[in-house]
Design a protein around this nucleic acid. Structure first.
Lengths: 347, 347
DNA sequence: CTGTTAGCGCCTTCAT
DNA sequence: ATGAAGGCGCTAACAG
């Protein structure tokens, strides 16, 4: 505990310092301490001084939990994620940067560290934190948000864009089409797809973009070329191995996100398949990790930091009552050509 | 609020659903609901069923805050950071990965979004969350931790390694020496240094490594070549501009972390100075962003994910009472040569 | 098996 | 100007 050397004859306190400890040490009531700490009127200057001295000596800080249980506002915004992976980490950076000057602290919560998050996980998380600890929340890739949340909410890349809370996402269909168009323009015809998380809208949109683009180019859709990537590296790797072990393997893979694309890259390396000479790979997201590989990943860049920042600003507007209706912010995504794509082998 | 269509004649509830709402709707006492929800013994099966039905209908979840105020344990580990930037984001990824299977949820807290964190910021954050919300904490780059914290704590890259809580860090002196040796071996003699945050031990160690290495190579130490980088991109940029505007500018810069190295890269680009032909830059950390630049950054890699994972494991051991004494884990850092370093211009 | 009671730490009337 | 009392939502001990 933070019991430092106590000069003024105040006895040290065991455990966490509470308002009661301060009150006892200062010889006043807890109510008075509360008033002093929260700068309320009606306390004699001499009392204020006395109490503050004890507060400093004991290193007292009001418990966020206790006060939030009592108060209505906490000035804390919650960021609810299933996991801290590169995607949510990027959003967090953007959210954090945008939080400067708003007066809100940030609390990022990751439940479900043990189990896979069930559909609707965000409801549980929200229920556990809302109403008391946090004033509003940013939901990262929620699966089943409804409109009637207990506190203001903004969802990033949610399952369903309409009818629910305000949302932020990037152009998924357009991005996917740009990715596949790029591959087609290089000459690829056998293009596989590593699908995203089935509980997310973005997965469907990206697959839709993939199919539409094939269709437009007159390439027949082959369902056997679409496997699960689940937005995860290991799943992407496994599916890619399946794909690449076939006698007539695809010459290109469009992965629904960078993580699964990195998994595909892992697979190619393991199988001794050269990227991009023998296999082209395109990802989606543009997480920083996508430049750390050799070859560097060609991908569809989503403005993740900006998406996070936008979500935070929208939420703060709601919290400050400046904005009432729900908004749906769509940001642009764009093709970033790096080193993982090339024309297919001459074969 | 999560009031869904209520079938069993339970009236909808306004605001967050509390245990009282459930009790009232189910026609039992709050104590009984609590027992049911927490799977305690001594409740009739029929009652359990009845209560659970209402719980599901109303979408009730126990408030983390209220229960943590009452209980001693919460099974939540706090990660206290000043800011969500690339460094702490990497740690968070490692911490999150290591949390799988431990039974602990994660709560990452960033206070100080408005103000610069004062020395000892971690004490306030800890006081606000400890004792109730979180069972233990990982402190990221704390500035003045003492040994007597109210809850078990592990510090990552703290101000002082000894006498305080358990710590995790990487080899700072060795890393810095490797960086500067690399530059010297390339032929550099005028090597500048962008110093880190003055409130952190790691800054001193890296500067120490820099000076020792110069000394060993017989290069006189020039204090005018050491400027503040503050571990931040913008500060690194400003200082680098100062350095590069001089008539006799350095041929190489060793930045105390990648962020300030990226700032130096920004500065060079603005001034039209070619990296690495006219200026070499070495960073420290190996955040994913260090590969996203052109040229890619040569840097000292700290195993950030692993550091986070180690910290989590150490903390869990403390929480489970398997480990009592404080430990200091030192991980290795290593030079990663990429594209931002080359021999100095022939001049 | 169920309900009543007390209290976690804090803030807010409302008396004094 | 100060303090006593009630209550936020919940759980643990005890009573019935």
């Amino acid at each position: 505990m933070f019991t430092m050397s106590v000069d003024a004859g105040v006895p040290p306190v065991l455990g966490r310092v509470t308002i009661t400890d301060v009150a006892r040490a200062a010889g006043v009531s807890v109510a008075t301490v509360s008033k002093v700490v929260n700068a309320r009127y009606g306390v004699a200057p001499s009392t204020v001084e006395k109490v503050m001295a004890v507060v400093n000596e004991l290193g007292y800080e009001t418990s966020l939990i206790a006060s939030s249980l009592r108060r209505s506002r906490t000035n804390v915004i919650g960021v609810l994620v299933t996991e801290f992976e590169p995607y949510s980490a990027e959003l967090l950076k953007g959210i954090g940067a945008a939080a400067h000057g708003t007066g809100y602290e940030l609390l990022a919560h990751s439940g479900w560290v043990d189990q896979a998050p069930p559909i609707g996980w965000e409801r549980r998380s929200l229920s556990r934190l809302a109403g008391t600890l946090i004033d509003g929340a940013i939901l990262v890739t929620p699966t089943a948000v409804t409109a009637d949340t207990p506190i203001p909410v903004v969802a990033i890349d949610p399952h369903t864009g309409r009818g629910g809370p305000s949302t932020v996402d990037a152009d998924n269909v357009g991005g996917a089409r740009a990715a596949v168009e790029h591959l087609i323009s290089l000459g690829h015809r056998r293009i596989a797809h590593l699908r995203g998380r089935v509980d997310l809208e973005s997965s469907y949109r990206r697959e839709e973009g993939y199919r539409r683009c094939l269709e437009k180019a007159g390439i027949p859709f082959d369902p056997s070329l679409v496997l699960d990537g689940d937005y995860r590296r290991e799943v992407g790797r496994t599916s890619a191995i399946d794909l690449l072990d076939r006698t007539e393997r695809p010459t290109a893979i469009f992965a629904a996100n960078d993580l699964s694309a990195l998994g595909a890259l892992d697979a190619a390396r393991e199988l001794g398949i050269d990227v991009p000479r023998e296999l082209s790979i395109v990802g989606f997201d543009d997480i920083p990790e996508s430049t750390a590989t050799a070859p560097r990943l060609t991908t569809i860049a989503q403005p993740l930091r900006q998406m996070g920042a936008t979500a935070l600003r929208m939420l703060v507007e709601q919290l400050n009552g400046q904005e009432s209706g729900t908004r749906h912010e769509h940001l642009r995504s764009e093709l970033v050509i790096r080193e993982s794509t090339a024309p297919p082998p001459a074969a």
